[in-house]
Amino acid sequence: MDLVFAYLDPGSGSIIIQAVIAGIVALPILFRNRISAVVRTLRGGRAATPPPPSAPPTDDRPR
């Protein structure tokens, strides 16, 4: 399928380096997600009850 529509040559070097750069710039986001996951786990483990409804929503979007 992508052969049909990929009229644009993405360039091998550009594809390879974009993955590296995306990895670098995603680090803070992944780190933050990891932290909030740990926080959730700790809260869940300590309270043995469902997390309070005021828990902040989490997603992986840059803010």
């Binding site: 993405p10 360039g11 091998s12 070097g13 550009s14 594809i15 390879i16 380096i17 974009q18 993955a19 590296v20 750069i21 995306a22 990895g23 710039v25 995603a26 986001i29 992944l30 997600n33 992986d60 979007r61 840059p62």
Partner: peptide, 29 residues
Amino acid sequence: AIGRNADGKGAEARAVRLSETRLRALLGN
């Protein structure tokens, strides 16, 4: 990277995977 990867990196490039989180981070950056 373009200078280094001018030829012969097609197979390596085809293997590249980018999660939605990483793509979103790339576009956001």
